[in-house]
Design a protein around this nucleic acid. Structure first.
Lengths: 166, 166
DNA sequence: CACACATGGTTGTAGCTACAACCATCTCAC
DNA sequence: GTGAGATGGTTGTAGCTACAACCATGTGTG
């Protein structure tokens, strides 16, 4: 039975294998690069930065936990732990949602707002250095198309952010 | 001074931002998808699978720890921990390198070889489903070029595998 | 209006990774 | 040949994520 699966498997050809091996390497290496720059310059993980960035763009710098989890591509438990730590550091604050007693709102504090404004330039520079500036404008467009297609298969119900939907 | 940095920052335009946000989402979501399929079907993380795959392709299914770390894009401490666990499970075995008493060789056992042969078809199918088969042949080529460029900036000295060098 | 189920969120814990400290062996200049 | 530094690898530990269990509130059906 395994033999049958084995022989019927559609293995990857050379071009496919090259693309996949490189993508896997990016998956492995790029997060570490982003994390260590943010860690060094702002004592922040990339995910923490993303949480702050999403809050900073929201009305009143406030979002419900569920919405924030969607925008940051994370599960609720993970977000909950992270927000607790950010709260302990005075970067965000949590308060019950008035319209729905089950829900919790997270808001960026003044200190958090100041911190992300100070951190953003260095982070953007890192993203430019390792991703944007090494690609041509055509490749930027291609990358958006390619990642869009991958995301549709990884998150078919659109559970996550609408940011990347096309 | 920060003001100066702030105003001189080259922010991302719309096309750049779209590409980056989507890539960041892929970075966040795809590893989880790969991990959970392998975890469910073979009690393996994606990284453990990769370690086994690299060994399975090597002469005598044996590699030195340093070479294995390079091929799997990992640090030596990380690899050391992972290999110890795989050794406890009877999937790999370690023995001192005859030519260099400092070095250690890792070898895939017969059980490990059997396991990866059983696991590979399902994993390849997952990679096809979420990456390869959602792209056109042109996009596969573009993806290889794009990830190649990113890897050159992330790993400029070529410390890691030659697999992705062009 | 009561019950079942869905939704929103938190908490406990196991397991993996990063970082630093450490040890052993090799290389080479003198 | 010996001391200094480089190389190869392991181990300890702090911190983050995944998963499961849990609780409170909301919603809909009879």
């Amino acid at each position: 039975m395994w033999q049958n699966v084995f022989v019927s498997t559609r293995w990857l050809d050379d071009a496919e294998m090259t693309a996949w091996v490189r993508l896997a390497a990016v998956l492995e290496l790029l997060p570490g690069v982003l994390d260590s720059q943010l860690r060094r310059d702002a004592e922040l993980t990339h995910y923490e930065y993303y949480v702050m960035a999403m809050l900073s763009e929201a009305p009143k710098r406030t979002l419900r936990m569920t919405a924030l989890a969607q925008r940051t591509n994370a599960t609720l438990p993970r977000l909950s732990h992270v927000v607790k730590r950010l709260e302990d550091r005075g970067i965000v604050e949590r308060f019950p949602c008035p319209e729905d007693a089950r829900a919790t709102n997270a808001r960026l504090t003044a200190a958090g707002w100041k911190k992300i404004r100070a951190t953003a330039p260095g982070h953007v520079e890192t993203v430019r250095q390792h991703v944007i500036d090494v690609l041509t404008p055509e490749q930027i467009t291609q990358l958006a198309e390619i990642t869009g297609a991958i995301l549709e298969s990884v998150d078919p119900e659109g559970n996550l952010s609408a940011v990347y939907r096309r």
